[in-house]
Every structure is written in C-alpha cells, then in structure tokens.
Deep mutational scan, measured.
Amino acid sequence: LQLFIKTLTGKTSTVEMEPSDTIENLKAKIQDKEGIPPDQQRLIFAGKQLEDGRTLSDYNIQKESTLHLVL
C-alpha cells in the first residue's frame, strides 16, 4: 500500500509498504529515502505516536494514509 509521509517542512514523500510491515520497517524505508536515522523519527497517525514493534495493520493504516514525521 502507498503511504504519504509528511514532514514539518510540508514536504511529502511516498513509500510503498505492506499492511504486515512494522513501524520499524517503515522508519528504515524513510531512512533510505530521506537519510533520517530511525531513532530520530517519530511518526504520528490519527494523533497517536506509532511504536516500532507494531504493524501498520495494528494501527489500521490504510492505503494512501498520510503519516506525520516529527524529528
């Protein structure tokens, strides 16, 4: 599924993920695209901070969801 990652600067990146992927996997993919180390990334979806060990489906993240990346 395609996700949009929006940064505080207003920049939006697109990443392709599976519902079974963990937040950790997602942060690794963001690191590949943006060069931001996972330990500096905080991802927010629906007002919640996402935890590394959980999966996208745990948070009911659907295709074309927008996640907010806070550093």
Rank of each mutant, 00 (worst) to 15 (best):
32 D>K: 13
19 P>Y: 10
27 K>F: 02
30 I>R: 01
32 D>M: 14
43 L>W: 06
58 D>Y: 15
56 L>S: 01
71 L>P: 08
52 D>K: 04
15 V>G: 01
50 L>I: 04
51 E>P: 02
21 D>Y: 04
33 K>Y: 09
6 K>W: 08
35 G>E: 03
57 S>E: 11
28 A>N: 10
54 R>P: 03
12 T>V: 14
40 Q>P: 02
46 A>T: 05
12 T>N: 06
41 Q>M: 14
59 Y>V: 03
48 K>S: 08
10 G>M: 03
9 T>N: 14
23 I>R: 00
53 G>S: 11
62 Q>R: 11
3 L>R: 00
16 E>S: 11
40 Q>D: 07
5 I>D: 01
59 Y>S: 03
67 L>M: 05
1 L>Q: 03
56 L>G: 01
49 Q>K: 09
42 R>C: 11
58 D>G: 04
60 N>V: 04
24 E>Q: 12
35 G>W: 03
44 I>F: 15
13 S>V: 15
46 A>M: 14
45 F>A: 02
66 T>D: 03
20 S>A: 08
40 Q>T: 08
34 E>Y: 15
34 E>L: 15
14 T>A: 09
29 K>E: 04
65 S>L: 04
11 K>F: 11
47 G>L: 03
20 S>N: 13
54 R>E: 04
55 T>Q: 08
11 K>M: 10
38 P>T: 14
22 T>M: 06
14 T>R: 11
56 L>F: 07
19 P>M: 09
53 G>R: 09
21 D>G: 09
31 Q>K: 10
24 E>P: 02
37 P>H: 11
2 Q>E: 07
37 P>Y: 05
62 Q>C: 05
45 F>R: 02
4 F>S: 06
27 K>R: 06
65 S>W: 04
9 T>D: 14
67 L>F: 04
42 R>Y: 11
69 L>S: 00
36 I>M: 04
63 K>I: 06
46 A>H: 13
50 L>D: 00
59 Y>W: 02
29 K>I: 10
45 F>W: 09
1 L>N: 04
28 A>D: 06
48 K>I: 14
7 T>A: 07
65 S>A: 12
60 N>Q: 08
49 Q>S: 10
28 A>C: 06
4 F>V: 09
68 H>V: 14
1 L>A: 04
22 T>W: 04
57 S>R: 12
56 L>Q: 00
18 E>V: 10
63 K>W: 09
70 V>R: 09
42 R>D: 05
49 Q>T: 14
71 L>W: 11
23 I>Y: 01
15 V>S: 01
52 D>A: 07
31 Q>N: 09
57 S>K: 12
13 S>F: 15
10 G>A: 03
20 S>Q: 10
45 F>K: 02
50 L>H: 00
59 Y>F: 04
38 P>C: 08
66 T>Q: 06
16 E>Q: 11
15 V>E: 02
62 Q>P: 12
63 K>S: 15
44 I>A: 04
60 N>P: 04
35 G>A: 05
44 I>N: 05
68 H>R: 08
30 I>Y: 03
